[in-house]
Amino acid sequence: MKKFVLSICFMVLFFCFGLLCLREESFSNDENRLLVKRSFGQTLLLESSFQDQFLYRSCFLEYSTKFKKLVGVRENNQVYFGRDGYLFEQTHALKDKDKLVSSLNGFYKKHNDLNMSLLLIPSHITVRPDLVSGVPVFDEYQEMKSLYRQIQFNVIDVVDVLKEHSMEYDMYYHLDSHLSSYGAYYVYQKYAELNDFDFLPMDRFHVEVVTDSFVGDLARRSYLFSLKKDRIVRFVHQDVDHLYFDEALKSNDMYGYFLGDDAVVTFVNDDQKNEILVVKDDDANVLIPFLVNHYSKVHVIDVNRYTDSISDYLESHKEIKEVVFIYGMNGLEKVL
């Protein structure tokens, strides 16, 4: 009898569960993606729509990740679960390193009158391997060094400086793969040292908390939405409001607060003299507000969004005397 009652309960539960899949939402804020809408034309789409439209989808996704954790799995969607609420992006060998090297060296040969440098931002796991144990970690630092050896212009190694200060401040966010403002400050310091200008000491900046509810890309990918959210801070030295995009804080992509998502941006500082071109991917966004303090004009080109020739851009902006390529190691393949 007990078994019969339980069987009825299961059937009722299945049906009630089905009813919770009947809403019509078009976007998931937690996952930051479009949801499949109900369509009766194709069964596969209909099945996906029920998965996507489930009322407590985020909750269930999180439970599935927690169950995986419970049975001993240490990753979800290529995100490792670290200690103290940290999530880490997996690192991989570069598939087409030679192509990147030859294109960068080729660019340098074409513009060898410019002061050119390459700055690669390591992944969080390379800087804090102690926060995650028992998982296979690709030696990204070796890869970075071997790449640097083949580059014919200046290279800037920031791994040591990030490691050195990683115990004082969080160089990266807990739930996001990007560099935090503190990490960016030390990268800027290293950049200044190697380019012979005086960097501003940290006490000259006013550190402002912009938001304390930042859910990064790693939390979304691993479905761990209820971990302690990150704080986004900004380092303010002068009037730099035009460098930040407040609207981004109301959206799902809060990291867009730094620089937004334009392909080309130019920042002017009348107190300085030289002009610099920064060719970068998303990882460098947080660094730009520091550089603005030292150049009369900072031209920023987002390599993932800019479709024209960078050489042509330089031709039309003869005043640029310095070029820096700033890429995140994990995003390098995208820029090829």
Binding site: M11, F14, F15, F17, G18, C21, T43, E47, F50
Partner: peptide, 19 residues
Amino acid sequence: MNVCSILFLCFFVPIFYSV
């Protein structure tokens, strides 16, 4: 229809068998 899906388990099975 895949048997391992919400469509089958939460709609098809309860409705079909209830009727």
